[in-house]
Design a protein around this nucleic acid. Structure first.
Lengths: 211, 211
DNA sequence: GTCTATACGATGATAGAC
DNA sequence: GTCTATCATCGTATAGAC
């Protein structure tokens, strides 16, 4: 009647409750009750409540970055095959699209995005360190490939412009479920592909802007 | 020896501790001890711990938006005097510059920015509602003025592009103290004016990009 | 109106028996 | 590995002194 092991059950219950009601608003007792395990199991398997959040986040972030990494491989391979610089739009599409299309394919995507937002806002959160350790190689690789695609642009300038681009994406991730401010005559509902193209148009124009 | 009133002392102590150690990591007992007031004073003057955070944020956000509002007035006045559409760069400079230059003039600016980041990440936070209630008129006004400055652009498209622009700014605010990923040969130290111009170049190129 | 002292229920964490 | 019992600490509420 309760086949999966305790660790998995805790991860599943925690992911849902953390995202739904927030990290601090969720008690360990609520999680262990939902998972139908003992209260002390959390500290036995993970060590602390925050370490449980770490594990939940790492479980989703790993596969996502694996997809991104594979798509960056493709872009690099295409460029090498035709002996040219990598295509800027293909590059950023490889980075952006897996995240945005999570909502379509994965279940609990909004849970994951909500968790990332919460984790990154903590000042001394060990969670942010986990996130950064996972994301840093991806950022560095994307930066170097962007420099190759825009060889005329100073690296220092591109660094900051990439910072702006990442900000646009992360803000979009954070606000994608709850509608932000809606001016009159504007609807927030939009197709994922259209949204991806709009973000790419915006980002590429900013990256390539004259000084 | 302890001249200011209790309310003020609590706001000051809470602002510093919340920003330094995080909202949930800071106990009311730590705050009241730092403020040298009684524990129950928090609930008497503010009602709850979260309401205290509300008050701290509103204290900084109000004056900041007042500055922004005044500068938007100027842009509108200039446009009306010359009977033309508002200047897009002046418009966004009015919105962006007061925030970025907080670090130069105001004390505890990084505290405020850290608090905003924390507040916005909470799923059901009443704090986000407070923030949004303060920011919504500003966003709506900026949106309408941007539409006037770019009359050819569809409103729906401009709405999303403005969303991307706000994301860039908020990400910059959140990460301005702690250096993010630093590729080789890149330094994160930069003059505030240069940074402002770089952000404006990037944002305007994105807003004006062809479809 | 303000401030103080004190108490209550719930939380995250831990120790030790099984 | 799992469980029960227990701890210090948390946010909150209230009764009563100035």
């Amino acid at each position: 009647m309760r086949p999966p092991d305790t660790k998995q059950r805790l991860l599943d219950a925690a992911e849902q409750l953390f995202a739904l009601r927030g990290f601090h608003a969720t008690s360990l007792r609520a999680i262990t009750q939902a998972a139908e395990v003992n209260l002390a199991a959390v500290n036995y398997h993970f060590g602390s409540k925050e370490a449980l959040l770490d594990a939940v986040m790492a479980r989703s972030l790993g596969p996502l970055n694996q997809v991104r990494s594979g798509r960056l491989d493709e872009v690099e391979r295409d460029a090498a095959a035709e002996n040219r610089a990598p295509d800027l739009r293909a590059l950023w599409r490889a980075f952006v699209e897996p995240t945005l299309s999570m909502r379509r394919h994965e279940t609990g995507a909004e849970h994951f995005l909500s968790l990332v937002g919460q984790a990154l806002a903590q000042p001394h959160g060990a969670v942010m360190e986990v996130f950064m350790r996972q994301m840093t190689p991806m950022f560095l690789r994307l930066f170097e490939l962007t420099c190759l695609a825009l060889p005329e642009m100073p690296r220092q300038l591109l660094f900051w412009r990439m910072h702006f681009a990442v900000g646009s994406l992360s803000h979009l991730m954070r606000c994608n479920d709850q509608s932000p401010v809606l001016p009159a005559g504007i609807t927030a509902e939009i197709d994922v592909d259209t949204l991806t193209d709009m973000l790419l148009d915006y980002t590429l124009a900013g990256l390539e802007a004259p000084r």
